[in-house]
């Protein structure tokens, strides 16, 4: 188990940097494997979806605020899709619903 935060951060920073560095350094041709290419293509969607739900619902003090933020986030992302706008809309939803809950 790693209790030292600096060592943890160093390990994780190096891991993330290596992920970004190795293809740039060694890969000068496109990936051949169709399966691997497809797998990499789908990874962000699954990872971010799993991290977002159900965590967003339980992130705030009230379950209702979390559910409202999820719904507003989905709708705004569907209509607009801008990172900043979606993030702010979710925050505003939690703030406003928090006034009534």
């Amino acid at each position: 188990m790693t209790d030292n935060i600096y060592i943890s951060l160093l390990i994780m920073c190096l891991t993330v940097y290596m992920i970004r560095l190795l293809p740039l350094l060694f890969l000068r041709k496109p990936i051949r494997s169709r399966f691997f290419r497809s797998f990499l293509y789908y990874v962000p969607y699954v990872t971010l979806a799993v991290m977002t739900f159900p965590a967003i619902v339980t992130a705030t003090d009230h379950l209702g605020s979390g559910i409202a933020a999820l719904i507003v986030g989905l709708v705004v992302a569907w209509i607009n899709g801008d990172l900043f706008v979606v993030a702010i809309s979710c925050c505003a939803t939690v703030f406003l619903t928090g006034l009534f809950l």
């Binding site: 977002t52 986030g73 992302a77 899709g81 801008d82 979606v86 939690v94």
Partner: peptide
Amino acid sequence: NALSVSLYGMFLAIIIPPAKHDPFIGGLVA
């Protein structure tokens, strides 16, 4: 409390627009 959901909002902004254009990705997210 309000700011605690901004990261999740950002994640939604990354995954939802492609899901809109590609129903398979939409299904994958769901």
